[in-house]
Simulated assay, not measured.
Amino acid sequence: MIRGIRGATTVINNEESEIIQETKVMIEKMANKNSVQPEDIASVFISVTPDLNATFPAKALRLIEGWKYVPVMCMPEIDVPNSLSRCIRVMMTVNTTIEQQKVEHIYLNDAVKLRPDLQSGVKSN
């Protein structure tokens, strides 16, 4: 069965190293918490708010061992007034046997505000 795993994080600065590092941390937590291996992944979509343009956050995936062939695409997030700034959002579609309600979605830093209903004691890093 293909399931979606959501993730989101924020950065303090629009800097390449910070964007890549925070994205990498989030992606690794998404995979680890849901026992995802690279060959289980159908695709990864990453969106960023308009205030983040220093780099492609997809570069973070290339730093993870075994993720060379995982398909990934970056895109802009809708520019909604008063929405969370400096935010990186991820939708990872994976082949898994995990029941939908047991998928662990990962929200880090200020992004924990986005889906408090999905937080199970997870705090920002």
Rank of each mutant, 00 (worst) to 15 (best):
I5K: 00
T9A: 06
T10F: 06
V11L: 05
V11Q: 00
V11H: 01
I12H: 04
N13E: 13
E16A: 13
E16H: 05
S17I: 09
S17D: 13
I20E: 02
I20F: 04
I20K: 01
T23W: 03
V25S: 04
V25D: 08
V25M: 07
E28R: 08
K29T: 02
K29N: 12
M30F: 07
M30V: 06
A31R: 00
A31N: 01
S35M: 15
Q37H: 13
Q37M: 12
E39F: 12
D40P: 08
A42Y: 05
A42G: 01
V44E: 01
F45H: 11
I46C: 04
S47W: 00
S47F: 01
V48H: 00
T49I: 13
T49A: 08
D51Q: 12
L52T: 00
T55M: 09
A58I: 15
K59T: 06
A60Y: 03
A60L: 06
I64Q: 09
E65P: 09
E65G: 10
K68H: 12
Y69K: 11
P71C: 04
C74S: 11
M75H: 10
E77W: 02
I78Y: 08
I78Q: 11
D79H: 08
N82L: 10
S83K: 10
L84W: 05
L84H: 05
L84D: 05
L84Y: 04
S85N: 15
C87H: 01
I88F: 03
I88S: 03
R89F: 04
T93Q: 12
N95F: 09
I98Y: 07
Q101S: 14
K102A: 15
L108A: 03
L108F: 05
N109F: 11
D110Q: 09
A111T: 04
V112E: 08
V112D: 06
L114R: 03
R115W: 07
R115A: 10
D117L: 09
L118P: 01
Q119L: 15
Q119N: 14
S120V: 10
S120R: 14
G121T: 14
V122H: 15
S124A: 15
